[in-house]
C-alpha cells in the first residue's frame, strides 16, 4: 500500500515539477548560447544588453519560482490532500495514517533535492565556460584528501555523515512543517494562521534546545579524562554523530506527534 501511495503522490506532484524543471534547464541553455557571460564586453549594443537583462531576469525568476513552489507544494499536499476535503478519500483508504505521512515526506524530500540539483546544474550551464566534469571531480577529490590530512578523519566517513545529517535535517524540517499544520488543524478557526504560529513556536523551541545543548557541550574542557587533548578527528566525528542522533530524535518526535493527531484527533471539516 505504501508503494501505491508513493506512486499517486509522485503523479500528483510530478505533473507540477517536471515541466518547471524542463523550462528552467531549457532556459539556462538558451541563456548560455545567446548571452554567454564571458563575452559580454564584445557586442555590448543597447538592445543586446536589454535582451540579456530580460533573459537573465526570467531565468532568476524561474529559479526563485522553483524554490517557492517546492515549499508551497510541500505544504499544500499535506494540508489540502490530507486535511481538506480530499482527506475524506485519503483517510478512508485502507492504509495506516503513518504511511500517509511517510509517503508525503519521502516525495517532498525527493523534490526538494531534485529542485536543488536542477538549480545547481542550470547555474553550471549558464556560468561555466565549458568546464570539464573531470576537472570538477578532480578538484573535489583533492579537497577530500586535504580534509583527511587536516582532520585525520576519513573523508569518506565524514562525507557520508554529512550527507546523512543533511537528509535528516531536511526530513526534520519538513516534519516540523507537518506537525505545525496538524497542530493548527486542532483549532476550529484560523487554522492556517495558527499553523504558521505553531511553526514559529516549534522552531523556536528546537532552537533553544539546540543552543542549550551546544553551550553545555562546548563548555566542557577539550581534554579526555586522562588529561590529554582530545584529537581533532574524534572530536569532529563526535560532533557529526551527535548532530545526527539529535536531528533524528527531533524528526522522530515530530513524526510521532503528527501521526498521533492524524490518527486520534483528526477532525475534518
Amino acid at each position: 500500500m505504501l508503494g501505491k501511495l508513493l506512486k499517486y503522490e509522485l503523479k500528483a506532484t510530478g505533473r507540477l515539477f517536471i515541466p518547471l524543471y524542463l523550462t528552467t534547464l531549457i532556459f539556462a541553455v538558451i541563456n548560455r548560447f545567446l548571452f554567454p557571460l564571458n563575452n559580454f564586453g564584445e557586442k555590448s549594443s543597447a538592445i543586446y544588453g536589454i535582451a540579456m537583462t530580460i533573459s537573465m531576469f526570467i531565468y532568476v525568476t524561474l529559479i526563485v519560482g522553483l524554490m517557492v513552489m517546492t515549499l508551497i507544494v510541500m505544504i499544500q499536499r499535506f494540508y489540502k490532500n490530507l486535511l481538506g476535503d480530499e482527506g475524506y478519500l485519503m483517510f478512508t483508504l485502507p492504509v495506516q495514517s503513518h504511511k500517509h505521512i511517510f509517503s508525503k515526506l519521502t516525495v517532498s524530500m525527493l523534490w526538494t533535492i531534485v529542485s536543488g540539483v536542477v538549480a545547481f546544474f542550470s547555474i553550471l550551464i549558464i556560468s561555466t565556460k565549458a568546464v570539464s566534469m573531470t576537472e570538477v571531480f578532480s578538484t573535489i577529490s583533492t579537497a577530500l584528501i586535504q580534509f583527511q590530512q587536516d582532520f585525520g578523519i576519513s573523508a569518506y566517513l565524514a562525507g557520508f555523515e554529512v550527507i546523512v545529517l543533511g537528509i535528516l535535517s531536511l526530513a526534520s524540517t519538513i516534519l516540523t512543517i507537518y506537525a505545525a499544520i496538524a497542530l493548527g488543524h486542532l483549532f476550529n478557526k484560523h487554522k492556517l494562521l495558527i499553523s504558521f504560529g505553531m511553526y514559529i513556536l516549534l522552531s523556536t523551541v528546537s532552537q533553544i534546545i539546540t543552543s542549550i545543548i551546544g553551550i553545555i557541550f562546548f563548555s566542557q574542557p577539550l581534554f579526555s579524562p586522562g588529561g590529554s587533548l582530545i584529537p581533532a578527528a574524534s572530536l569532529a566525528n563526535g560532533i557529526l554523530l551527535g548532530s545526527i542522533i539529535y536531528t533524528a530524535a527531533f524528526a522522530v518526535g515530530y513524526f510521532i506527534l503528527t501521526n498521533y493527531i492524524l490518527k486520534r484527533k483528526l477532525n475534518l471539516e
Partner: peptide, 9 residues
C-alpha cells in the same frame, strides 16, 4: 458515520 469510518475517535 464519521466514527464508523475512523475519521473521528
Amino acid at each position: 458515520i464519521k466514527l464508523c469510518n475512523d475519521l473521528l475517535t
